[in-house]
Design a protein around this nucleic acid. Structure first.
Lengths: 123, 123
DNA sequence: CTGTATCCCCTTTGATACTG
DNA sequence: CAGTATCAAAGGGGATACAG
């Protein structure tokens, strides 16, 4: 086993988090997992609340980390397509596992909330 | 499949990330996974760079989310023990999966770095 | 020993306007 | 269409001092 005991930060875990954390990265990744290729504008429509700046920057970081591929068509008007890189597809199982745990967790919170409410009603 | 296509944020994934993101949460969680119970001061020694304030706040958030249990011994001087809650143990597989992916990713980066270096040497 | 309270900084995010 | 530039706001995080 790795020795995390004396001051060694858990760099593996951090490495994974560095890739997927960022306010919009999770949802961007899921759209790209489910759609093969998406244009910039399609992503924008899919995530209406995001600004162009944020969409650009988050995609750039994913591209920098080799998770996402960016294909530029030199046309007028321009067209750019984003897709998961081959390497990026390796993230899929992890993202699915996270989503699954998150789903259960939201149910868990629901139950806690319900119990609190019932307690309040009784009193 | 869930429909993430039109503006629905991926709340499940976000829920998972909310729990484990935070500068010190990953390493705190791993220490608690490997040690059953740890006192506040033991955690501090295990993570020397962390400040008391941060250790407190991160633990409080984990406690609030029902991941970590806090046991207070009313003594002088005080003694507080932290441990994974039963619910928190359910995070273990996910954390291990993340660490595993992160490990591979760090190797991936190593290889990229090495290739770049060899290219530079050739030129 | 196990915390809190303050104050400050820095990074991330957002609003808005401009451009090839 | 697919961005960039600029500035402002918000929040997370750190240093330090104090407290039960």
């Amino acid at each position: 086993m790795t020795n995390q005991s004396k001051g060694e930060t858990c760099k593996e875990l951090q490495a994974a988090l560095d890739i997927i954390s960022g306010k919009w990265k999770p949802i961007i990744l899921f759209h790209l997992m489910e759609n093969e290729k998406l244009r910039f504008s399609e992503l924008q429509r899919a995530i209406p609340e995001i600004t162009r700046k944020m969409l650009t920057s988050q995609l750039r970081e994913l591209e920098y980390n080799n998770i996402v591929h960016r294909e530029i068509y030199h046309q007028v008007p321009p067209k750019v397509e984003y897709s998961m890189s081959e390497y990026g597809h390796g993230l899929k199982p992890l993202l699915i596992a996270m989503r699954s745990w998150g789903f259960d967790h939201l149910e868990h919170l629901e139950n806690l909330y319900r119990q609190d409410n019932e307690k309040l009603i009784k009193e």
